[in-house]
Structure formats: structure tokens, C-alpha cells
């Protein structure tokens, strides 16, 4: 679970003379357990791409397939179910609910799940432990640091055990040291089998991914493979290139 296929994805905003193409036809695949970063200038289309991959933004044209599921052929409620079951979202500004405690924020995705309250609490505690925030369950978001808020957002994103984690500039508001900690956490989660797609401006963070897609003007201009990638633990053999260039629409 977690194999992503993007085929000719396009997104146009506005109408008539005001219309412009934010994404002009992107095609690529992401394998299960892969850690992919997307880099590009502001307005290049990377956040639009991520929102489409998050089933939040219907593309003008193209297909977005996760495993065998054509996401945009689903109805709105089914798309919401898809987001709940498959995806974890991490936003640049954390987007924590200010009046809820850390624990309650992490439990949010479980609020609509049909499981017992005790089990929900256990899952949230486990997620908080995973991100190193045990003991801060009852704090409010404004009572913890920015790095800790980011960790709460990550705990919230992984609490329902998603197969894909989408992160929109997760280190954008953090200092170098805290960013390092977040990237290490991503490596840990990736090591547990979660496919990670991270949009970032930070070239250093991007290099931490297995692969980097460079986006410009709504197109994928090139892809780079990190030298750090030596093994592919999720069914891929070392020495076999899992990311052939012909599978990526590079302009």
C-alpha cells in the first residue's frame, strides 16, 4: 500500500483571460516506502501538486492513482474517507487547533473513527511518544515551542497509521537544529514503511530524501537521486533503479 501514480496532472485556476496553469502536466510514480522531496520556487506549482495529491484539489486534467484507486473518480465523501485512511498531512504552519490540548489535537483524526475512546487515547499517546512528546499531552499549542508544535502536527498526521505522509514545507518555520530533528523523525517514519512526499524550499532537507523532483513553472524540470540511498527495504532490490527516467515526465 502506498504506491502513487501521477499521470498528466494539470490544474488551471481562474477563467478567461485571468486563467493560468499552476500545474501544466506532471507525470511520475512514487514507490511504497519511498521518501520523495519536491523542490521549486514560490509559485512553481509544488503546493498545488501536493494539494492534488492530498485529494483536496480536483485537477483540471489527469489522473492520480494510489495503489489501484483513481482518487478523483471518487465522490467527495469517499475522498474524505481516502484522506482519513491513507493520508497524513503536515502543514507548514502546523495548523493546530489553539483551544485544544496537544493530546486532543493528536486525537482529532480519530474523532470520527469507530474505535473505543480508550483505544484512541492509547493511539494518540503512542504517536506522541513516537515524536518524543510524552508528558506534554495536556499543554496547549501556545505553551510549547515551534519545533514541538511541528512534532504535534506530525503525531496528528501519523496517529491513524497512514501509508502516505504529505508534508508541505514542514521545516519552513523552524531553525536548522529543529529542522534536523524533524528530518530525522521523517527518516524514522519512513523506516517504518510510510511513503513520504515533502515539499520544501530547503535544499539540504531535500537532499535527505531518496529522490528529489524539481518543479518549475508547473512542470517537473528534473529529478535527482540522493547518493545516500543505498537500500530499498520495501520490496525493491538494491542495484535496480526503481525510478527510471522514462517514468517521469521531465521537460
Amino acid at each position: 500500500m502506498g504506491y502513487i501514480q501521477v499521470e498528466g496532472l494539470m490544474k488551471e485556476y481562474g477563467k478567461g483571460e485571468a486563467a493560468f496553469m499552476a500545474v501544466r502536466g506532471m507525470s511520475f510514480q512514487i514507490h511504497q516506502g519511498e521518501f520523495v522531496s519536491i523542490v521549486g520556487e514560490s509559485g512553481s506549482g509544488k503546493s498545488t501538486l501536493l494539494s492534488m495529491m492530498g485529494a483536496l484539489n480536483t485537477p483540471t486534467k489527469g489522473r492520480y492513482v494510489v495503489d489501484d484507486m483513481d482518487v478523483y473518480s471518487l465522490g467527495l465523501d469517499q475522498r474524505a474517507k481516502f484522506r482519513m485512511e491513507f493520508l497524513g498531512f503536515i502543514f507548514q504552519s502546523f495548523y493546530l487547533i489553539p483551544y485544544l490540548t496537544v493530546m486532543e489535537n493528536v486525537m482529532l483524526p480519530l474523532a470520527i473513527a469507530k474505535i473505543k475512546s480508550r483505544e484512541k487515547s492509547d493511539m494518540a499517546r503512542e504517536a506522541l511518544m513516537q515524536v518524543g512528546l510524552s508528558g506534554k499531552e495536556n499543554r496547549l499549542p501556545n505553551e510549547i515551542s515551534g519545533g514541538e508544535q511541528e512534532r504535534v502536527a506530525i503525531a496528528r498526521a501519523v496517529v491513524n497509521n497512514p501509508t502516505i505522509l504529505l508534508a508541505d514545507e514542514p521545516t519552513g518555520n523552524l531553525d536548522t537544529k529543529t529542522s534536523r530533528g524533524i528530518i530525522d523523525l521523517f527518516h524514522t517514519l519512513n523506516g517504518e514503511g510510510i511513503t513520504i512526499v515533502m515539499v520544501t524550499h530547503n535544499a539540504e532537507c531535500a537532499r535527505e530524501a531518496h529522490r528529489t523532483l524539481c518543479v518549475s513553472d508547473g512542470l517537473i524540470m528534473e529529478q535527482e537521486r540522493s547518493e545516500k540511498v543505498v537500500t530499498y527495504p520495501f520490496g525493491l532490490k538494491a542495484g535496480v533503479d526503481p525510478y527510471p527516467m522514462d517514468k517521469v515526465a521531465v521537460q
Partner: peptide, 16 residues
């Protein structure tokens, strides 16, 4: 609005 956006992004349906 933004709060509802977060709820929807994490899987809340219209009916929720």
C-alpha cells in the same frame, strides 16, 4: 473556515 479546512484535510466528511 480554516479550522473546518483542517478537519476536512484529516478526513472529516461533509456530514461530520
Amino acid at each position: 473556515t480554516s479550522e473546518f479546512g483542517i478537519f476536512m484535510a484529516i478526513g472529516f466528511r461533509r456530514s461530520h
